[in-house]
Design a protein around this nucleic acid. Structure first.
Lengths: 197, 197
DNA sequence: AGCTAGTGCGTACACTTGTACGTAGCTTAG
DNA sequence: CTAAGCTACGTACAAGTGTACGCACTAGCT
C-alpha cells in the first residue's frame, strides 16, 4: 500500500553516499545535516525525514563501507595458497593496486577514531576488522594475524601522515615476510607449506 | 615594568594542562574554551586572554606532549646495546611498564588524527615522530625503523580498539623480533651481533 | 468526485560555539 | 595623591548546529 510521491527512489542511497564523501573529505566533524544535504543536492527536510537522527545516518553510512572493504581485501586473501601469495596480497593492499586511496584510509581512520569513544561505531569497526581477521586467520595462526593487522594499519597510518612520500615496496614486503613466516605457537619449528600448483 | 595583578602565576600552565586532560578524556572535539575553562577553574575571559585563539591553545598544549614522550620511550632506546635489548624496549613500550596508558594513546591518536588534516598539527606530529625515529635509526637501518614505528603504532591502536583484551606478550615480542632481525639493505645476509656482557 | 492517510520538505527554535570588546582594579611614575 | 597604563575578566554577538513541527501535495479507496 504505497502512498505519497516517491519521486526520487535513489535519494536515500544518495544521501548515504554523500555522507561518506563528506566524511572522507572533511572528517566526521564535517558531517552535518546541512553540509551533507548540500553535497547530495537535497533539502534539509529530506535529511531528517530519511534519517531522523544524525548519529543514525552516520552509522548507516559507515556500515556500508563494510561491503566495500570485503572484495578488495578479503577476497584476494581467500585465494592465496602459499605464504608468498599472502605476502603479495598484503603488499598490494598496503601500497599496490588494491590498496585504498588516501581518502579511503582517511575514512577508515575516522571509523577507528570515532570507534574509540562511541560504542555504536566501535561495533561497526569490530565488524570490519572481523571480516579481515577471519580471512587472515584461515591461512595464518591467530597471533600472526593480529600482528599483521597491526602492521597493515600502521603502514596505512604512515601513508596518512606522509602523503607526499611513497613507501618503499621492498621495505613493506620484507616486513610482512618477517611476520608471515613467524612460527606458529606450539610449533617451535616453522614449516613452510608448499601446496602451490 | 610589571603592572596589574599577577595573582595566579601558574594559571597559564594550568590551562595548558587542563587542555590536555580534556582532549585525553573527550577528544579534540571536546576541547572548547568553555569546557577547558571549567576544567581548569578559570573564567572564560582568562582563556581568550592567555590564548587569543583556540587553535593556538591546542597547538601549544599538544606541543608540551613532546617532552613527555622523549624520556619514556627514546631514553631507554638510547641505552639499548644489543638487538635483544631493543626488542625488550619495544615490547615494554607496547604493553609493559613504560607503555602509555590508554588515555595517553588516545591523546596521541588525537594528534595523529588531527594532523592528517591540519598542517600545524602535522608539524607537531612530525616532531614527535622524528624524536623516536632518530633514536631508532641509531640502532637499526632506516627501513626497519619505519616498519617498527608502523607496528608500534599498530599495537597501540589495537589496544585502543580492544581496551578490555590484553595483548599477549609473546605475540608482541615475536613480531618485534622478526622486524628487528630484518637484514639491512645492501647486506643480504643478516649478521647477529653479540656484544652483550 | 471527495475523503483520508501518509510522504516529503520548509521553517523555526533552542542551544553551543569562538571571539571581540568594554571595563574594573591594581601598580607604578610623577 | 593623582594620572595613567596594563592585567584580567564579564558580557554580548554572530554563526552554526541538531531537531521538532506543521503544511502541502500525491495516491488510493469509497
Amino acid at each position: 500500500m504505497r502512498r505519497g510521491k516517491p519521486n526520487d527512489p535513489g535519494r536515500r542511497a544518495r544521501i548515504l553516499q554523500a555522507t561518506l564523501d563528506v566524511i572522507r573529505a572533511g572528517g566526521m566533524e564535517a558531517a552535518s545535516y546541512r553540509g551533507i544535504a548540500a553535497h547530495a543536492g537535497v533539502p534539509l527536510g529530506s535529511m531528517t525525514y530519511y534519517f531522523p537522527t544524525l548519529e543514525g545516518l552516520i552509522l548507516s553510512a559507515l556500515d556500508t563501507t563494510r561491503s566495500d572493504l570485503e572484495p578488495r581485501y578479503a577476497d584476494p586473501l581467500r585465494e592465496a595458497q602459499t605464504r608468498d601469495d599472502v605476502v603479495d596480497v598484503l603488499v598490494d593492499a598496503t601500497i599496490g593496486a588494491t590498496s585504498p586511496t588516501l581518502d579511503d584510509i582517511r575514512l577508515y581512520a575516522e571509523i577507528r577514531h570515532y570507534g574509540a569513544r562511541n560504542p555504536k561505531v566501535a561495533d561497526v569497526l569490530q565488524a570490519v576488522e572481523d571480516d579481515s581477521l577471519v580471512t587472515l586467520h584461515r591461512v595464518l595462526p591467530n597471533s600472526t594475524a593480529l600482528a599483521i593487522n597491526a602492521l597493515l594499519w600502521g603502514w596505512w597510518s604512515h601513508r596518512l601522515a606522509h602523503p607526499d612520500t611513497a613507501l618503499d615496496e621492498l621495505t613493506v614486503r620484507q616486513a610482512f615476510e618477517a611476520l608471515v613466516n613467524l612460527p606458529a605457537p606450539g610449533h617451535p619449528f616453522h614449516e613452510k607449506e608448499q601446496n602451490n600448483a
